[in-house]
């Protein structure tokens, strides 16, 4: 089956029922998307499918075939991190970092839907993701500041190293 991930087209011979998460991690070596529970409860595996957030652990790979999948590895444009990634760095919005890709993807999707979310909207938009290290205060702050940065594109962007 054909799977487009981060703009690259892959032709894969895999069991259609296999989870998208398993295919991304094992077949495509895209390990930025994390396994946290495999049951749709934690958001560590969140990816974008045609721009919509989806929990890849409970998405059969066949459901993503022919559509465009974006993982955390595909967010930066070359060396330029996306505004959410930049904001996560600027606000140290993580500790162990294991939940971070899932949060960044969910937040990116949230800001694409709603460019000026209130704090309450940020909270409910990210409630499907768990950060056991408890970095939530910073995550909220980072997402709101990313919204501000996206609203004023002139604001200083931080290049990746």
């Amino acid at each position: 089956m054909d799977l487009t991930v981060n703009g690259d087209l892959h032709s894969l011979q895999v069991d259609r029922e296999r989870s998208l998460l398993s295919v991304l991690r094992s077949e495509l070596d895209l390990t930025g998307t994390k396994y946290g529970c495999g049951e749709g409860n934690c958001g560590a595996c969140t990816v974008l499918i045609d721009g919509e957030p989806a929990q890849s652990c409970i998405t059969p790979v066949s459901a993503a075939a022919g559509r465009s999948v974006t993982t955390v590895e595909g967010l930066a444009a070359g060396d330029e991190l996306n505004p959410v990634q930049q904001a996560f760095i600027a606000h140290s919005a993580f500790q162990c970092g294991y939940c971070t890709p899932g949060f960044i993807i969910s937040a990116t999707a949230l800001l694409a839907r709603n460019s000026h979310p209130s704090e309450a909207e940020v909270r409910s938009g990210l409630n499907g993701n768990i950060c056991r290290c408890g970095a939530y205060v910073r995550i909220i702050r980072a997402v709101r500041s990313a919204a501000t940065a996206m609203a004023s594109p002139a604001s200083a962007r931080e290049p990746a190293e």
Binding site: T31, G32, K34, E73, Q85, F88, I89, S92, T100, E161
Partner: peptide, 19 residues
């Protein structure tokens, strides 16, 4: 304050034992 390991965490490049 910006952690030295920040970049690999936000880009998904950090390798954990699961990875």
């Amino acid at each position: 304050a910006r952690r030295v390991d920040a970049l690999e965490k936000v880009t998904g490049r950090a390798r954990y034992s699961q990875d």
